[in-house]
Design a protein around this nucleic acid. Structure first.
Lengths: 318, 318
DNA sequence: CCTATTATACTCATTTTGAGTATTACTGGC
DNA sequence: GCCAGTAATACTCAAAATGAGTATAATAGG
């Protein structure tokens, strides 16, 4: 047991809501860099009995938000995160958390504000077809980077990896590979974080809105996890109002997953899944036939094992 | 940014192998309690660039094991873990890791040794049908506990939770709910860890072999994660020898998942999945017709997205 | 060469899923 | 009040995946 150095533990929160068909993220303005940053609080070993309680504590104090589902994402301890002092005297370890809430909630009081998740990861939003940034920026620049590398045994492997993560060469787009895509762009030096310590001062156009420190990596982790988990856990409902139409639910799932779904099949999955129940009320502001409003059946948590919202895919012949 | 207290970060490793159709776990003997403990090393912020590198570092030094896949499991910071000093001066935060290896490897040099995973979680092994301990011990004692609780609004919810996690009342056994089951037993005071700080000195028969501190919770987390992940990532192959028969592969998956699989369908899934390729050699020591030996196709990692080993289930009419 | 034993191949009924078409119930303009 | 537009909801159908077998092949040991 080597003597521990001065270590500080921070609890970072990726606080997510869905409003007006967009996935939203609570950020604060970092005063020194002017960039957006994830809110965080310290872990106080004396006061906080568990890490999660520490997180809930400072969120409650600082934002008066009512958090729903909270889950630990990952613990980041990399040196080189810019909170690390060159002196080596202090090291920050961040424990990232994903927290779901409802933007209609009391709301933040501090300098925190809601932003659109896809401001930071614009290539992840395929709801209106393939994002233009892929065609215009990412593919050419990834290609330049790839061809500029020295050939080696790993060359073919890297090519495959690029194709897989970005759905190139007839491979399907897999919405869950958010972190994998971010990391590839990072390796290729295409996101601002990757060149922060280098000579390049960011004049070249960067992909997506930069964030403080490695926070974009953390939200990529969060989005990937969330996209995966809504399929087998009823997490979407924590982001919905009390009553909602099936189409509103679909829109929320689409906002998170970043892909469009087949309406009739989505409806079938939800109905057959027994996750919701009719409230008797209808929403007449649909522009067409009024839609029945539903509410989440709390008791499904008690009777089903993995009551998620499946995401219909596209048929592919193998 | 509150001043950080003295915090030590430990890197705990759940090192897993599969040998002779049993899932194995590398443990050390805790000198003070005589119990088995997970090996761990300190995180040294000066030397270790990342948490994972820190982990690989001490594992390499202490055991000379060749680790394959390594993944972070969870960060535990609960007070009350017995490494916490009442004085409140020092607090240990443990980052748990799952690491896969091959027991045929060089092997450990220290006091570490391999044990059977199911020694600690005997109710998780359904390969020979329902474990007797469920019938003889767990169900009756869970029942006693449940009926001894004061009735409240949460009573029904708890009953459902018991039924779900343990597959009671015609609900199917879900092999992935390892942590959920452990936590339920913990709440019910049926595992030794739960009564360590209480008056009870453990005379009553405990369920499964006790471990040091909260290490059994960590291995429950690991087993649950592993059982889930082998279904969509080719992790089993890291636990297999270079060449293996399909039946040996099946046995390994069964060892991990704790359930028996349908042989013909398993074979179909693997074959259709294209995860393996014939080596041309056969294993004649089968007791019957010789079995072809296969090897893992490394390049599937490059061409498929979720090349896991699906676990055939049982048909249930809804 | 017969039997036991395991590997491997093939069959079949269901269920699940992707993708449509058809029908229903509103609103707003005239 | 009727019609067009629009969205919600219902229903159909073929393909693929899945659970559960039966059938056949290839070895060892007597």
């Amino acid at each position: 047991m080597a003597a521990s150095q001065e270590i500080e533990i921070r609890l970072n929160a990726v606080i997510v809501a869905v409003t007006k068909e967009e996935p939203r993220l609570l950020v604060v303005d970092d005063t020194t860099t002017g960039k957006h940053a994830l809110p965080f609080g310290p872990f106080n070993p004396v006061k906080d009995r568990t890490l999660e309680q520490g997180l809930r504590g400072w969120v409650k104090n600082q934002t008066s938000l009512q958090l729903g589902h909270v889950e630990q994402l990952y613990t980041f301890g990399d040196r080189g995160r810019d909170t690390y002092h060159q002196s080596g005297r202090e090291r920050v370890v961040s424990v990232g958390y994903l927290a779901l809430t409802n933007e209609a909630n009391p709301g933040a009081t501090t300098n925190a504000h809601w932003t659109n998740w896809y401001d930071y990861l614009p290539w992840e939003d395929w709801r209106d077809g393939e994002p233009k940034i892929l065609q215009s920026e990412i593919r050419p620049r990834l290609s330049d980077w790839f061809h500029g590398l020295p050939k080696s045994a790993a060359t073919n492997s890297l090519r495959q990896r690029i194709h897989l993560t970005f759905g190139l060469k007839a491979r399907p787009w897999n919405e869950e590979l958010v972190l994998e895509r971010y990391e590839l762009l990072y390796e290729a030096g295409l996101v601002a974080e990757a060149v922060r310590s280098a000579q390049d001062d960011g004049k070249e156009s960067r992909l997506g809105l930069d964030m403080h420190s490695d926070h974009r990596r953390i939200i990529a982790t969060a989005l990937g996890r969330l996209r995966g988990k809504i399929k087998y856990r009823p997490l979407v409902f924590e982001l919905m109002p009390e009553r909602f139409t099936l189409f509103q639910l679909q829109r929320a799932v689409e906002a998170l997953s970043g892909v469009r779904l087949h309406k009739q099949n989505f409806r079938r999955l939800i109905a057959d899944g027994g996750l919701v129940e009719e409230t008797g009320s209808v929403d007449v502001h649909t522009g067409g036939r009024p839609a029945k409003q539903f509410s989440f059946r709390e008791d499904v948590l008690l009777e089903r094992l993995s009551p998620g919202v499946k995401i219909p895919g596209k048929r592919r012949t193998r």
